[in-house]
């Protein structure tokens, strides 16, 4: 973790946390354009916020929590409902232009998960967050997170037909 400074220039802040925020948004939306919208929202909220950070962990936790909330809100938003209504085809076509890695088995496996399982899985597998912390940032009970993770892992295992840890 870099030396803590209360006020970071935008570029430095984005270097540190844009991947984290963007990946959370992407894990929920599975769409780059939507993930960019959410990422922008999160960082503009950060700029408007008057929060005083205790340390870098505090700042990161806040960004993760806001990213989770913005992603949830985005999926409920009129924009998302509208784009869902006009069909899957344009979104898939747009995704074709991105890196081939995204088209891996895991991409389709994660995409097949119910939306509510995607963020807990991401925070658990990629951010290495403990269940208690995931419960805190998602605003759910630990028992709920535990069962979501268990179901999501079962589903992924079934799709990927592999052992899991």
């Amino acid at each position: 973790m870099p030396e803590f400074r209360q006020d970071l220039p935008a570029k430095e802040l984005l270097e540190l946390y844009s991947d984290t925020v963007y990946r959370i948004a992407y894990s929920r939306t599975q769409n780059r354009s939507d993930a960019e919208d959410i990422t922008q929202d999160v960082f503009l909220k950060y700029i408007s916020s008057d929060k005083k950070w205790r340390d870098e962990e505090h700042r990161k936790a806040w960004l993760i929590r806001v990213a989770v909330n913005c992603s949830k809100d985005f999926m409920k938003s009129a924009h998302k409902r509208y784009t869902a209504d006009i069909g899957e085809l344009p979104e898939k076509a747009a995704d074709e232009s991105y890196e081939i890695e995204e088209k891996s088995e895991i991409y389709y496996a994660v995409k097949s998960l119910p939306e509510k399982y995607r963020i807990p899985i991401h925070l658990f597998y990629y951010e290495d967050m403990p269940i208690a912390a995931i419960a805190k940032v998602t605003g759910t009970k630990e028992s709920t997170v535990r069962s979501q993770l268990s179901r999501a892992r079962d589903m992924l295992k079934k799709i990927l037909k592999e052992e899991y840890t």
């Binding site: 935008a10 963007y22 990946r23 992407y26 895991i106 990629y126 892992r153 990927l160 899991y164 840890t165």
Partner: peptide, 27 residues
Amino acid sequence: NIKERYSEYQRNITPDKEFLDNLAEKM
């Protein structure tokens, strides 16, 4: 395993540089 595959898959998901430059300016 799934965790490793998931992590590897996520490492490829990064925001576009132009998008980040524009966002930095907006911020």
